[in-house]
Write a protein that binds this DNA or RNA. Structure first.
Length: 426
RNA sequence: GCGAGCGUAGCCAAGUGGUUAAGGCAGCGGAUUGUGGUUCCGCCAUUCGUGGGUUCGAGUCCCAUCGUUCGCCCCA
């Protein structure tokens, strides 16, 4: 094939699908706005170092999935693989912490990871995310989760599970890590190959192995929850209580760990069974160490990200595509009529109607066929006779009823027309 | 990075080594030179992702390559 194609792992969102995206964006704006989150837009690429430090050099994202390149000034740049690092960078750079209080931010945009594409996974994908910076209050943890569930249920999604866990602070996790290694080492030969490898590299990740034998061995493994300090334990319980008070069901899952280095305490995922093997549609948690890690002041923070492609996959299973939302389809034939049709279309648009003008110049029969398919509520007909008398035929496409009126009247009866059209759109 | 499946028109496809590549949807033209959603007729792949090979003969078999899908790793 000699024609140029979209890059592997990227895709075009065509008009027939874009309605879903607009819907998601509208609901996200509304829900986040109501909770006093403010939108922030950061660059699509950053210094490579930001992600190495922020996401963690040992993570798969940084070690093998980043789109990193050198620019003409020989700087190492990277297409952002996630949103948090850039937001935190901006927070520090613009001294948003100096404004005092809590910063509630949200973002939406494309992210890039060099991975093998499959269902619900692409190389360029989109996330909407929130970050609450400057609060260690457990209510912040509960709030971000509540906002996420509002967003998802606001789109009509059901059958979602909230998996919830605490991975404690660094020292809790360090002790647990040692205990887990001690427990698993005698079973090493029985673990799946990947997990054997992870035993030294990243033992916590063994917990969510999909291998059955490994999972059987893990039945008796120590739980992170037994290693939480009293403070960590207290936080964990408070967040759970708040979720219960809010009526948000959750499932404590002590096997839940996250792939990014910066998480502490609260971690959670919202999952669906309708996504194939990529079940997680929303994931997040607390990251109290990240801001200082990136050179800012000690700052508590919590946030999440939602994968929009996965979200839209769910939405499509639930809703048929929305039909076109057109008021008028204007058909015309003959020089004078065609000239008038142009002006009539424009005038109607200026009074707030949506109008599609048929440009084909083909026989009326063909134009009607297209009018019918356009999904318009009404068809306006302008031929030689109408042009002569400066009238227009107004045909209601559902009923077939047709009336003749002057173009002047059509443009002056906008109130009444509007009402009739809205009534028919239902 | 690893494993498996699949690439025939804009879309869905039949085709299982024998030569003219079914059918459906959509589109376009006509029946119907000013009235749609129904119906009828006609048109729409010198070629089966690409390159090479096997064969008298390849969309069908083999190899490579690209793309795609699903899974693993990992992640939203």
């Amino acid at each position: 094939m000699s024609t140029v194609q979209a890059i592997r792992g990227t895709r075009d969102i065509l008009p027939e699908e874009v309605g879903y995206w607009q819907q998601v964006e509208a609901v996200a704006r509304a829900v986040l706005g109501r909770a006093a989150y403010q939108e922030i837009r950061t660059p699509t690429f950053e210094q490579t170092e930001l992600f190495e430090r922020g996401v963690g050099e040992a993570t798969d994202i940084v070690s093998k999935e980043m789109y990193t390149f050198r620019d003409r000034g020989d700087r190492s740049l990277t297409l952002r693989p996630e949103g948090t690092a850039g937001v935190v960078r901006a927070y520090i750079e613009h001294h948003l912490h100096a404004q005092g209080g809590v910063q509630r931010l949200w973002y939406l945009g494309p992210m890039f990871r060099y991975e093998r594409p499959q269902a619900g996974r692409q190389r360029q994908f989109h996330q909407v995310g929130v970050e609450v910076l400057g609060s260690a209050d457990p209510r912040a943890d509960a709030e971000v989760i509540a906002v996420a569930t509002d967003l998802l249920t606001g789109l009509g999604l059901k059958d979602l599970r909230l998996e919830f866990n605490s991975i404690g602070d660094r020292s809790d996790r360090q002790q647990y890590r040692e205990a887990l290694i001690a427990y698993l080492t005698p079973y090493k030969a029985d673990l799946d190959a990947d997990s054997q490898d992870r035993l030294t590299r990243n033992p916590l990740r063994i917990l969510d192995s999909k291998d059955q034998k490994t999972q059987a061995i893990l039945q008796e493994a120590p739980s992170i929850l037994d290693f939480l300090s009293p403070d960590s334990q207290g936080r964990f319980e408070q967040v759970q209580q708040l979720l219960t008070d809010l009526g948000i069901p959750f499932n404590v899952n002590s096997r839940l760990v996250r792939g990014l280095d910066y998480y502490t305490h609260t971690v959670f995922e919202i999952q669906s069974d309708d996504l194939g093997s990529q079940a997680t549609v929303c994931a997040g948690g607390r990251y109290d160490g990240l801001v200082s890690e990136l050179g800012g002041p000690e700052t508590s923070a919590v946030g999440w990200a939602i994968g929009l492609e996965r979200l839209i996959l769910l939405l499509q299973q639930l809703q048929p595509p929305k039909p076109a939302n057109l008021d008028f389809y204007l058909v015309s034939r003959g020089d004078r009529a065609e000239a008038q049709s142009m002006k009539l279309a424009q005038s109607l648009r200026q009074t707030g109607f949506s109008v599609e003008l048929d440009l084909s110049g083909s026989a009326f029969g063909k134009q009607f066929k297209r009018a019918d398919r356009s999904g318009a509520v009404a068809c306006l007909i302008l031929g030689d006779a109408e042009a002569e008398s400066e009238t227009v035929q107004l045909k209601w496409l559902a009923s077939g009823a047709q009336e003749s009126l002057s173009q002047k009247d059509l443009l002056s009866q906008t109130e009444q027309l509007r009402k009739q059209i809205t009534a028919l759109k239902k």
